[in-house]
């Protein structure tokens, strides 16, 4: 049994059905990539997994460690081990990063309060690893951040919260090559037997830094093709039209 199981997932926002039967299984220790053209439902899938209130699941189920999480609030899902790297993290003005991080780490601590010393030490080390300035910790969360700073902030959170399943929603979009390398560095550090990773992306570029074991292609709300690392190469050469042709052939 896989750690994260998405079974025949249908979801809509308003009257529009976006996910039309997604099946996907991710285990700890695995790195999956999810690609697809614009509007195929990639970001919707990540929002639905995290429990965004704008989406309604009409059919199917999501299981984490064997338990359905559909009835859980986003905060409960987070504490159960899910993490979402946002494509567009919002600013929370006036809330310092250190304050926010402490609260979020406290929420995960068995006694409800993580000792300040080790917390600060770990945060400083991780920030250094991600080439983030120490003074950054005093800034307002995502307040006036550049695109690259926001994404580093997301990776920093992933490193601090230590999820069992992390979803990266187009973390690479809008990043220059330096920022992309830093993000990849963070992700590769996190890789290991305790983390299952779903990397949602529009471009193959990031996949050359984060070598996924599996690639899935999402089209019109369904995963239409899955494969190993070789599929990345084929897709890069032949594009989505080739995928469409293949589906038509098999259909």
């Amino acid at each position: 049994m896989s750690y994260l199981q998405i079974k025949n997932l249908h979801a809509r926002t308003g009257d529009i059905e976006i996910l039309k039967g997604v099946n996907l299984e991710i285990n700890k220790g695995e790195v999956h990539a999810l690609m697809g053209p614009n509007g195929s439902g990639k970001s919707t899938l990540s929002s639905v997994i995290m429990g965004h209130p704008d989406y309604e699941v009409t059919e199917g189920d999501i299981l984490l460690n064997g338990e359905s999480i559909l009835e859980m609030d986003p905060d409960e899902r987070a504490l159960a081990g899910l993490f979402l790297c946002f494509q567009y993290p919002v600013a929370i003005p006036g809330v310092s990063i250190s304050n926010f991080m402490k609260k979020a780490v406290d929420a995960r601590h068995p006694e409800g309060k993580a000792p300040a010393g080790p917390f600060l030490k770990e945060m400083r080390e991780n920030m250094e690893y991600l080439d983030m300035d120490k003074a950054f910790a005093n800034r307002g969360l995502n307040e006036g951040f550049s695109g690259g700073e926001k994404k580093r902030m997301e990776i920093l959170q992933m490193m601090m919260f230590k999820p069992s399943i992390a979803i990266m929603d187009e973390t690479d979009s809008g990043l220059d090559i330096d920022a992309l390398q830093v993000v990849a560095k963070g992700v590769n550090k996190m890789r290991g037997p305790d983390l299952g990773l779903l990397v949602i992306t529009h471009y193959e570029r990031i996949l050359t830094y984060i070598n996924p074991q599996f690639l899935h292609i999402l089209m019109e709300g369904k995963i239409v093709m899955s494969g190993g690392p070789e599929l990345v190469k084929t897709l890069e050469e032949k594009g989505y039209d080739w995928v469409r042709e293949q589906i038509a052939v098999t259909a």
Binding site: G51, D73, P74, I92
Partner: peptide, 19 residues
């Protein structure tokens, strides 16, 4: 955003207001 980080609705709103 804040809830997806593990904060309850109340803590999340309180954090936004305090900020």
């Amino acid at each position: 955003y804040l809830k997806s980080r593990g904060l309850s609705e109340e803590d999340a709103a309180s954090m936004v207001v305090k900020g």
